[in-house]
Simulated assay, not measured.
Amino acid sequence: MGPVRVLELYSGIGGMHQALTESCISAEVVAAVDVNTVANEVYKHNFPSTPLWAKTIEGITLTELNRLSFDMILMSPPCQPFTRIGLQGDVSDPRTNSFLYILDILPRLQRLPKYILLENVKGFETSSARDKLVETLKKCGFKYQEFLLSPTCLGIPNSRLRYFLIAKLQSELFSFQTPGQILENFPDQEPKASVKHRVAAGLEKESCFMPPKEEYIDPNSGSDGGSGQCSQKEAFVFKLETAKEMEKKWNQDSNLSIQMLKDFLEEDGEEMSQYFLPPKALLRYAFLLDIVTPSCRRSTCFTKGYSHYVEGTGSVLQTAEDVQLQSVFKSIEMLSEEEKLMKLSTLKLRYFTPREVANLHGFPPEFGFPDKITMKQRYRLLGNSLNVRVVAKLISLLTG
């Protein structure tokens, strides 16, 4: 039996291809399809022997697809119609047309593929597009399982919650299949337990829980909200956030099953100076930044706007680990602009480099970018990509 013949749709920079390699199954990508010329340059740089079709998916005929005789489809359709911060146009959004074309042509193939894997944003699971996908899979005789997974479940300190569906063409169910349920962990992992339950089981040290209230806390008050559970230092909030958000961060950093960020960072050098936040960004966004240190076990999702936009696009790294956030932010609002900047600068805040973001996404060291791809383009492409290790594990489950 020869290698699995794979059709990679919406191939981007090749995250699915890299995951296929990491899964260690015998496979060959017979065609990768994407219209993004910049992404295609990166794909060709890393996978030069793979046939790359720079065309729209709607432009691929049934005859061309039949000629490929593929066994597996890997795809990550455009997420904008389903993202929570978008218009959520769903199937009425023109960007879903190519996906609807795939669903239309799938039942008409001479030979159905044995395996399908799809990745998208959280929100896809409640969309009409998902309903059409499931309807088509059932019509064609596929068994499927859905997931909502983040890299943290594999010990990677980066939150990137995504929807996944795996489907295979055979009569028996997956050994782990739970019809009608969306799994939030891999089937070989324990179900998620609350930190309180883990403390009771002796698996974690008891952490200092924040007061369970939703209102925003004054960053200069140093108050613990009257709960009496935390010291003033522990309760100090260095930016505007809810108690629930504070508790979540504390729990993430207390989870010893997740690696520290320092395992994913590049060595410091002169070239790192280009990644430090400029004074204007420090002054304007200081209280909105998600600041992490190398010893943290968490980081927020890196989006395609990372480094171009500051707010909500990903964490920033505090490289001066000996400086306490509390000492920098306490009563900072009382200072002049010059004094504020002086204090904020002591934290030595910088963006994660594209290589570090790629590391957190599971791309191996040998995966690179052509020199002509700009810094902004690298961040944008990585923000549109996926976590290689999560997909690799799903491919192993699918074909196992």
Rank of each mutant, 00 (worst) to 15 (best):
M1L: 13
P3C: 15
Y10M: 14
G15W: 04
V30L: 03
A32G: 14
Y43W: 00
F47G: 08
P48Y: 02
P51Y: 04
W53F: 05
A54L: 04
I57M: 14
G59S: 15
G59W: 11
L62T: 04
E64I: 13
L68N: 10
F70I: 01
D71I: 03
M72G: 14
M72F: 12
F82Q: 10
I85Q: 04
Q88F: 02
V91S: 14
L100I: 11
L103I: 10
D104V: 03
K114I: 00
K114R: 10
E119V: 10
T126K: 05
S127H: 04
L137G: 06
C140K: 00
G141A: 06
F142M: 06
Q145Y: 01
Q145D: 04
E146K: 02
L148V: 10
I156H: 06
R162I: 07
Q170I: 04
I182W: 00
E190R: 10
V199A: 11
F209Q: 06
P211S: 13
E215H: 14
S221E: 02
S223K: 15
G226Q: 08
C230V: 07
K233E: 13
E234P: 03
F236W: 10
T242S: 11
K248V: 12
W250V: 13
N255R: 00
N255H: 01
E271A: 15
S273L: 09
Y275F: 14
D290M: 06
S295M: 15
T300G: 14
G312I: 02
T319S: 15
A320M: 07
L325C: 13
L325W: 05
V328I: 13
V328R: 09
M334D: 14
S336I: 01
E338F: 04
L341G: 02
P354I: 00
P354W: 01
N359S: 14
E366T: 04
P370Y: 02
D371C: 05
I373H: 03
M375H: 06
L394V: 01
L397N: 07
L398R: 03
